[in-house]
């Protein structure tokens, strides 16, 4: 393995680790599903009938991706692709709601009613994570 490939491999591991930790930090969505369903409802992007099903599915998808990224190397690239799409979806949702003037938290990392309402910093943070996921995917390709 060349020096460049080693650097790409390191970037891939570090980025995967950070994204995994961030995805797993949303564990409260699984412990308190009603609170996360309310957060999803507050985005006003899905038909009412899909809100609960989507909130249950997304919370397990996040945890599934986090576990794959941390513990199952064979599934790491696939999990990065799923995480990338999830992050893009959430970022778009937050941006749309900011433009609509929503005063609620995104429910991403906390279920507390004291959680900071979504703002453009949340969008910037998510864009940073999208870039990180893209970097990890690039790193994985360069070391194949």
């Amino acid at each position: 393995m060349t020096r460049d490939q080693k650097i790409y491999r390191l970037a891939y591991w570090i980025a995967s680790f950070i994204i995994a930790v961030i995805l797993l930090s949303g564990y409260h969505k699984i412990i308190y599903p009603a609170d996360f369903a309310l957060s999803v409802y507050r985005f006003h992007l899905l038909p009412d009938a899909l809100v609960n099903a989507a909130s249950l599915y997304f919370s397990w998808l996040e945890i599934g991706c986090g576990i794959c990224l941390l513990l199952i190397p064979k599934y790491r690239v696939a999990a990065l692709w799923v995480a990338l799409v999830l992050l893009m979806f959430f970022t778009g949702g937050i941006a749309i709601n900011l433009l609509r003037g929503s005063a609620f938290s995104c429910g991403c990392f906390s279920r507390s009613p004291l959680a900071r309402p979504m703002d453009w910093l949340s969008v910037a943070r998510n864009i940073g994570l999208i870039l990180l996921a893209a970097m990890a995917l690039l790193g994985s390709q360069k070391t194949r």
Partner: peptide, 25 residues
């Protein structure tokens, strides 16, 4: 496989969860 397993986990977990929610509300 990740998409499928996550769906199965969501169904199983919600059916045994002490704070389970209805799938449609």
């Amino acid at each position: 496989i990740i998409l499928l397993v996550s769906g199965v986990l969501a169904v199983v977990a919600n059916s045994v969860h002490p704070r389970k929610i209805p799938w449609v509300q």
